[in-house]
């Protein structure tokens, strides 16, 4: 069942178009940086972007920071929102659940397919970012500098980049869970994706308000940028652990709601 869903997802041209478009923005940023040699001023611009002018090997992290606030969540919301509602809109959902596989299994298969999409997308962004970085900028393949000014060996840099890729992937699980949950309530994939994006925009807006500080620790986007903390020395685990736990809570609660709705829903389309 999971293999069927994965095959279906990755055989669709729009999946790969989405991934390609996602990589376009970091490439444009890299080209502009090379042409102008103008790094963002301290405190402005995405994380790591000012550092890539001296070490292009850090561009995968800058690429993740570029796509993380908006483009990556949009891609995840579109794919996850389409997973159930897309079948309903196409009129294939009732045929799917007519098979002897059970609705719970179908929902789990849809979720796993979305999570694999998230992982593949994040890894592709990182790999393309690395290739662009070492091609367009001067790279220091022997070592890197941590955010705290200490030297990181190649092994440390690779391990921490791996952690960051994993963390960004987990951060997108909340988006996927929102979109998948909404996807079980509507026959419109667009409505499900927009619903998830509305939640994320509201979360990002509330995070900037001092008046919302009591609820800030529970906002789904609160800890997204904590992947930068892997590159401090020593690693700052506080927000990373909280970010992982928060995504876990959102995924469990939203999938519980999605499961309760989907397994009891009267599917007619």
């Amino acid at each position: 069942m999971i293999v069927v869903e994965l095959r279906k997802l990755f055989r669709r041209p729009r999946t790969w178009v989405t991934i390609a478009v996602l990589n376009l923005l970091p490439i444009i940023v890299a080209v502009l940086l090379v042409l102008t040699d103008l790094a963002p001023r301290p405190g402005q611009g995405p994380a790591f972007l000012s550092a890539v002018l001296t070490n292009g090997a850090l561009f995968p992290l800058a690429a993740l920071a570029i796509v993380l606030p908006l483009f990556l969540p949009i891609a995840v919301a579109v794919i996850a929102g389409d997973s159930v509602a897309g079948e309903a809109q196409a009129g294939t959902l009732r045929y799917l659940i007519a098979r002897p596989v059970g609705r719970t299994r179908l929902l789990v298969a849809k979720l796993l397919a979305v999570l694999v999409f998230v992982l593949v997308t994040v890894v592709v962004v990182a790999v393309v970012g690395y290739l662009v970085g070492v091609t367009l900028f001067e790279a220091e393949p022997a070592a890197g500098t941590s955010v705290s000014g200490t030297t990181l060996t190649v092994q440390e840099l690779l391990v921490r980049t791996g952690y960051a890729v994993g963390y960004v992937t987990v951060s997108m699980c909340g988006v996927a869970a929102f979109a998948l949950c909404f996807s079980t309530f509507t026959d419109s994939p667009l409505a499900a994706a927009l619903g998830a994006l509305a939640v994320l925009v509201a979360s990002s807006l509330l995070f900037t308000l001092d008046a919302a500080s009591p609820i800030a620790p529970y906002l789904p986007t609160r800890y997204w940028l904590a992947f930068v903390d892997f590159f401090r020395d020593p690693i700052l685990w506080r927000d990373i652990v909280r970010g992982l736990a928060l995504q876990g809570v959102y995924v469990v609660v939203l999938l519980g709601v999605a499961w309760a709705n989907f397994t009891t829903k009267d599917v007619t389309s």
């Binding site: 405190g43 995405p46 955010v147 705290s148 940028l225």
Partner: peptide, 23 residues
């Protein structure tokens, strides 16, 4: 900060400051 850090290291010999984003 979300995108970097500014550090101060004080020892008996003196004090280092470090600004990641300005290198």
């Amino acid at each position: 900060t979300a995108t970097g850090e500014t550090d101060l290291r004080r020892t008996a010999a003196g004090r280092w400051t470090w600004d990641y984003q300005s290198d």
